[in-house]
Design a protein around this nucleic acid. Structure first.
Length: 327
DNA sequence: CATTCGTGAAGACGAAT
DNA sequence: ATTCGATTTCACGAATG
């Protein structure tokens, strides 16, 4: 256990330095019972601590609520030490189901026998397990429903939806949901999936059909990428061309020309750092102009949802890159 | 008249401290 | 948490056709 802690500390400085503090604090908690100063033991090895003297149950997941509970879980996963049903308490406030009280007293307030106390402890464990399982199920159902709804609204193909749900499930498994909205995570997962499957939608498009703000989508998305180690290339502008081309009803020749424009731009590197959607839109505009198929900037701008100014700036660059390539 | 072009100020964003 | 640099957007007026 301890050796792996040091390993992950050296790996990722900032995150794990804070975690070090967490672990230390936890150890203090372990030492003695807050009520009677008796010794706390982990009776059944699931992290739930019980005082030997008074029977007080100390929430074994307490450290999971700290800012770095994630690191804890990740490490646990790497070590494969986590077995059995998940005992995390996502949505711990949710639902009206019966909860088993933590006090070892009966309804009249008298103390329970040692035997009863053990029984109650076991019940608490199962109570917790069922509750979290139900919560996860509801959570997942809700999220998948959202993913489907948004996908339909955006005409996102089936494979991308599948990918989105896979990403969401992973997020759920790794407890990335705590403190975040289901809708936000579902939206972020969908956005990531469209990129991963090569049929990207812009953040704005996705946010438009989502129930959460754009800011939350991007924030959650970044978080998702970091925690799940998603390797996502910046979207290729070419991947937007087809969709916008058909929306603008340009000729095949214009669309082809637009793609070629983007290819030469990529070769010279003028594309990097620029908004891919803007590039795609500008390529279409420039291309239409080359084939004498005049489309107003205003129209391209409306379809792709980028400003006319950006189209102006980009399309000049694209033509320039083409000229350079030809000489 | 519609469309295009250029510009400075302002906002948004990611990266780095 | 703030700061910084690059990019995009907004608002406007001028030029072009």
């Amino acid at each position: 256990m301890n050796s792996t802690k040091t390993e992950s500390i050296t790996e990722d400085g900032e995150v794990d330095r804070r975690r070090e503090g967490e672990v230390d604090r936890r150890r203090e908690d372990v030492d003695d019972c807050p009520e009677c100063d008796g010794r706390l033991v982990d009776e059944i090895g699931d992290g739930e601590l019980v005082c030997e003297d008074c029977g007080l149950v100390v929430d074994g997941n307490r450290i999971d609520y700290g800012p770095e509970w994630r690191a804890f879980d990740q490490e646990a996963r790497e070590r494969k030490t986590r077995v059995g049903a998940p005992t995390t308490k996502m949505m711990h406030d949710q639902g009206l189901s019966t909860r088993i009280d933590w006090r070892n007293q009966d309804a009249y307030g008298s103390q329970l026998s040692a035997r009863k106390r053990r029984q109650m402890n076991r019940l608490r464990i199962w109570d917790e397990r069922f509750r979290t399982r139900d919560a996860s199920k509801r959570n997942l159902k809700h999220a998948l429903g959202e993913i489907d709804r948004m996908s339909s609204a955006l005409g996102i193909p089936e494979p991308s939806r599948e990918t989105a749900s896979v990403i969401y499930r992973r997020a759920l498994e790794e407890d990335l949901l705590a403190g975040r909205s289901i809708e936000g995570m579902a939206t972020a997962a969908l956005y990531a999936a469209t990129r991963q499957t090569g049929v990207p939608r812009s953040v704005d498009e996705v946010a438009n059909v989502s129930r959460v703000e754009r800011l939350e989508v991007t924030r959650t998305y970044r978080y998702l990428v970091r925690e799940l180690d998603l390797r996502l290339e910046p979207p290729d502008p070419v991947e937007y061309v087809g969709r916008y081309a058909s929306e603008l009803e340009v000729s095949d020749e214009t669309e082809r020309q637009a793609r070629s424009l983007l290819e030469t731009a990529k070769r010279t590197g003028v594309h990097s750092g620029k908004h891919p959607v803007g590039l795609a839109a500008s390529a279409l505009y420039a291309s239409a102009r080359l084939t004498n198929e005049r489309i107003p900037q205003s129209e391209v701008s409306a379809v792709a949802d980028v400003s006319e100014v950006t189209i102006r700036n980009r399309y000049q660059e694209l033509l320039e890159a083409k000229r350079d390539a030809e000489s």
